[in-house]
Amino acid sequence: MNNLKTIEAGLLALLLLAVAVPTWSVDAQELSAGEIMWKVYERPEGADRTSTLTMVLRNRFGDERVRSIRQFSIDLGAVEKKLMFFTAPADVKDTSFMIWSYDEEGREDDQWIYLPALRKIKRISSESKGDYFMGSDFTYDDLGDRWPDKDTHTILRDESLDGIPHWVIESRPKEADSMYSRTVVWVRQDGSWLGTKKEFYDPEGDLLKTLTVEKIEEIQGYWTVMESVMHNVQNDHRTIMSLADVSIDVGLDGELFTERSMRRGY
């Protein structure tokens, strides 16, 4: 269960959370692809959040498995802390997972897991960002905020999705060992800096996965993606990720993100 990076900013970035801002049209000629991706990256997401995350894993035969997590996050400026409590399935219930992610470039996350059967908190490595999260179609890296300068961005075209104009932006990684050869994201042109679709291509250049946003709600002034689907087109496996009980800017105490909470629960 290595390598969750910035879960609230992570899941939410991957889930493509957006801030409620007045809708206005942005002239594509005014911004470069890199500037647009920085706007997406720097979208405000609130000081803290709580939510319940449910993932339904569905294979090609329609068989389903369900994973549920209650999650808390806080942005303390230089460090962002996230605490997750697994509530289903039964054999992982009461397992908790904590991540501290740092703004400092190159600094690795601190990560711990509490295993109730062992009654022990273990520090775990933040390597293996390419591992899949809880057997889903999301890798830990997918769930994190990817630093825009790690990629080279190009605007491929303008395209309308559901009647809304989007930029279609291709991002190619600068590092050689990336698990994707490129990604393509659809970013709304209404000033929300919200992405609504993303394609992931494998190292051979073939389409691997498609992420689509299914449901968006405005919660406490923030446009929040409540449901999205990641479809691995190569093995026809889907992960339906949905949020519930979302609260933002609730004034979480930084001391929630400690050993005490990991052992005791929420």
């Binding site: 059967a117 062992l118 009654r119 001391e255 400690t258 050993e259 005490r260």
Partner: peptide, 23 residues
Amino acid sequence: PDFQEIRVGVTGASLNYYRGGST
């Protein structure tokens, strides 16, 4: 056996005090 089963519960009192990241 699993280590959960190897460890025997003990009867007593355990007091934890929390300060910052310390316990």
